[in-house]
C-alpha cells in the first residue's frame, strides 16, 4: 500500500500523519507542495494538520491553489483515496472535494483537548474498523473547526450517510456536531480531530489506530 503525505510550508503534523500510515504498514512518500504530480501508484494521499501558508486569511485557501493540490484533486477525481486531517480538512473544503466550510470556533479560541467522537457510519474504508455508534477519544487542536454547510448540503450529507464522525460534546459550534465527512464516493474523508495523535500506546490513547489499520486492509479490497 502506498501513501503520500503532502507537506505545505506551514504543515506541522505531516510527520505525525506519515508515522501513523507507516505504522499501519503503508509505504509512505512525502510530497512537496510545489510538486505538480504525485508519485506513481499512490493509493491514498494524506493532507496533514498545520497552518499550510500561515492561514492568516481563510485557512487552507492558498494551499487549495498549490500545484500539488491540483494533483490531489485529479487523484480524487480518478477515484483515489484522500484523508485530510484538521488543516487538511480545511484544504479539502477549499478545493471543493468536500462540501461546506470550516469557520472560526464559536468560542473564538483555539481548543486543544481530547474529545469524544461518535462514529456515525462504518460504511467507508476509513471507518470500517469501528462500529457505527462507537464513541472514541481523539484529540482536537484547532482554531477554525466550526463546520458549516447550507441546509440542503446538510440534508444530503445525512441522506447519503456521509457524516463520518460527530462530537459527543460539541466543542466548536459545528453544525450538527459534525467532526468529519465523506465525499459522495466515500473515498475522501475530512476530519478536524487528529487520529494520528491517538494511534499508539505511548501517546494519547489508541482509538485512532483503527482508522489507519482499516485503511491498510481496506484499500486492497477497493
Amino acid at each position: 500500500m502506498k501513501a503520500a503525505v503532502v507537506t505545505f510550508p506551514g504543515s506541522n503534523a505531516d510527520r505525525d500523519l506519515a508515522v501513523s500510515f507507516r505504522d499501519a504498514g503503508f509505504d509512505v512518500t512525502m510530497v512537496w507542495h510545489k510538486d505538480a504530480a504525485l508519485p506513481e501508484g499512490v493509493d491514498i494521499v494524506g493532507i496533514p494538520g498545520g497552518f499550510s501558508f500561515g492561514d492568516y486569511l481563510r485557512c487552507g485557501a492558498i494551499a487549495a491553489q498549490s500545484p500539488i493540490t491540483r494533483a490531489v484533486k485529479e487523484h480524487a477525481d480518478r477515484g483515489g483515496y484522500v484523508l485530510g486531517v484538521c488543516n487538511g480538512f480545511q484544504v479539502l473544503t477549499e478545493t471543493g472535494l468536500l462540501p461546506g466550510a470550516l469557520l472560526r470556533n464559536s468560542g473564538l479560541k483555539f481548543i486543544c483537548r481530547t474529545v469524544g467522537l461518535k462514529v456515525e457510519t462504518s460504511a467507508s474504508v476509513f471507518t470500517e474498523g469501528y462500529n457505527a455508534g462507537d464513541v472514541i477519544d481523539i484529540p482536537i487542536a484547532h482554531h477554525d473547526g466550526n463546520y458549516f454547510a447550507d441546509a440542503e448540503t446538510l440534508e444530503q450529507l445525512k441522506a447519503e450517510d456521509r457524516i463520518a464522525f460527530t462530537y459527543t460534546d460539541n466543542p466548536n459550534g459545528s453544525l450538527g456536531d459534525i467532526a468529519g465527512i465523506l465525499s459522495a464516493n466515500r473515498r475522501v474523508l475530512g476530519m478536524m480531530p487528529h487520529p494520528e495523535r491517538a494511534a499508539d500506546t505511548g501517546h494519547g490513547g489508541t482509538d485512532g489506530a483503527a482508522l489507519f489499520r482499516a485503511l491498510a486492509g481496506g484499500l486492497t479490497l477497493a
Binding site: 506541522n12 503534523a13 510527520r15 505525525d16 508515522v19 501513523s20 494538520g49 479560541k109 483555539f110 481548543i111 486543544c112 483537548r113 484529540p139 487542536a141 487528529h194 494520528e196 495523535r197 494511534a199 505511548g202 501517546h203 494519547g204
Partner: peptide, 28 residues
C-alpha cells in the same frame, strides 16, 4: 488552568506522553 492550556496545542508531534495540567509535561 485548562482555560489557558487548552489554547495551546499540546499534542502536535504526537509524542506527548503527558500534557499540561498535572505536574511536568512528558514527551517521548
Amino acid at each position: 488552568k485548562q482555560w489557558v492550556y487548552e489554547q495551546y496545542d499540546s499534542t502536535v508531534m504526537a509524542d506527548s506522553a503527558r500534557g499540561p495540567g498535572f505536574g511536568p509535561g512528558i514527551l517521548r
